[in-house]
């Protein structure tokens, strides 16, 4: 099986120490986490982790089972890129004078949909939201113009086929969860998903 990029979505309780419990599942197996984001989810009190790794499906499936085994984890899903809608946010700090002088830079920034969020005499900070390749490309493009600082956020992703966690949580609050106890119900459901 080939390695590819998988996005793991984990619904959890909001508990101190859980980030470590989840992170060591990867580090114990010497697997590099490409990006990790924690945030609230659509359900009040339920936390959502979005983790990106490069691995084979077999490994990702095992990892998700190990994650789900943690007492405070409700559910872990894994998806390939075509099964999710995702974004990352990047910030670029560039010298203002160069931008003002070079028409090319302005055009580039427009092309990438960059938004100026701070403009000062000495520097300007642009924000770009998009996929990894886009934000990566803009680094290369801006480097010749004196890119001062760059930072990118972790990925956030929505599972195309998911109906959210509200209904699922009700199952968990019952004594008997549904039959998908160890299955990823959003796999192989692509045909149901409209994509452009």
């Amino acid at each position: 099986m080939l390695k590819q990029e998988y996005t793991i979505t984990v619904y959890t309780e909001n508990q101190i120490g859980l980030l470590n419990r989840i992170a060591i599942i990867f580090s114990r197996r010497k697997i590099n986490i490409e990006s990790l984001n924690t945030s609230p989810s659509e359900v009040d009190s339920v936390h959502r982790f979005t983790i990106v790794i490069n691995e084979t499906e077999e490994v990702v499936r095992k990892l998700c089972r190990q994650i789900e085994k943690q007492v405070e984890v409700l559910k872990a899903y894994y998806n390939t890129l075509d099964e999710i809608v995702w974004q990352e946010l990047a910030l670029y700090k560039v010298p203002t004078d160069i931008i003002a002088e070079e028409v090319k830079v302005e055009r580039l920034l427009r092309e990438y949909g960059a938004k100026a969020i701070v403009i000062r005499k000495d520097y300007t900070v642009f924000e770009v939201t998009g996929h990894r390749e886009e934000t990566d490309n803009l680094i290369k493009v801006l480097e010749p113009y004196g890119l001062i600082e760059f930072v990118r956020s972790a990925r956030v992703a929505i599972i195309k086929d998911s109906d959210g966690f509200h209904e699922k949580l009700k199952e968990f609050e019952y004594r008997e969860p549904g039959e998908d106890a160890s299955e990823n119900e959003y796999l192989n459901e692509n045909e149901k998903v409209f994509s452009m």
Binding site: E13, E72, P177, E179, S182
Partner: peptide, 13 residues
């Protein structure tokens, strides 16, 4: 005897 995020036994299929 119940923690919502913890399933001690998977459901038997």
């Amino acid at each position: 005897d119940h923690i919502r995020s913890y399933r001690p036994k998977p459901i038997v299929r």
